[in-house]
């Protein structure tokens, strides 16, 4: 019986790849075959990519359609609404302008009304009520009043 280590020593000398045969020119032509294979792979991959993207493309198309419908119709509807609102507002404005009561007021009255100056006016009027009426008094009457 041979010693086991002797067998492995003997096998070490047989480590080369000559025990396997390779078709002639295999390595020389391998790169070209790889190139062909890659071309094939990429040509079959394109439809695969398209088929993978199909549902997403459908989804995107649907979304775009919704956006298109929104852009086309929604502004028209809102235009109609705005026009309606504008007409209503114009009518209200006309009514206000042509109101016979309001036409009696001038700008000053309006400002006074808005700023609340008629309150002051009324306060002034009240103050005026407490004061004596000085109209029609002579200089002597005035002197008497001051002295009194």
């Amino acid at each position: 019986m041979k010693k086991q280590d002797d067998i492995f020593d003997e096998l070490k000398e047989l480590k080369d790849n000559s025990q396997f045969s390779v078709p002639e020119g295999y390595f020389e032509t391998f790169h070209d075959r790889m190139k062909q294979r890659i071309e094939q792979e990429s040509s079959t991959q394109k439809p695969r990519i398209i088929s993978m993207l199909k549902p997403w493309m459908g989804l995107a198309a649907g979304f775009l359609m919704i956006v298109a419908v929104y852009i086309t119709f929604i502004p028209k509807i809102s235009d109609v609404k705005t026009a309606k609102n504008n007409t209503e507002q114009t009518n209200i404005f006309d009514d206000v302008i042509n109101d016979p009561v309001l036409t009696q007021f001038n700008e000053y009255d309006l400002v006074c009304y808005l700023t609340g100056c008629d309150q002051n006016n009324s306060t002034n009027e009240n103050l005026n009520e407490n004061e004596p009426d000085l109209t029609g008094l002579t200089a002597e009457d005035i002197d008497d009043l001051i002295l009194f």
Binding site: E10, L11, L14, Q19, F20, S21
Partner: peptide, 13 residues
């Protein structure tokens, strides 16, 4: 299969 080694190589494989 392309194996043409000697007997010992065949055994090892």
């Amino acid at each position: 299969d392309g194996f043409n080694g000697n007997e010992l190589q065949r055994k090892l494989q």
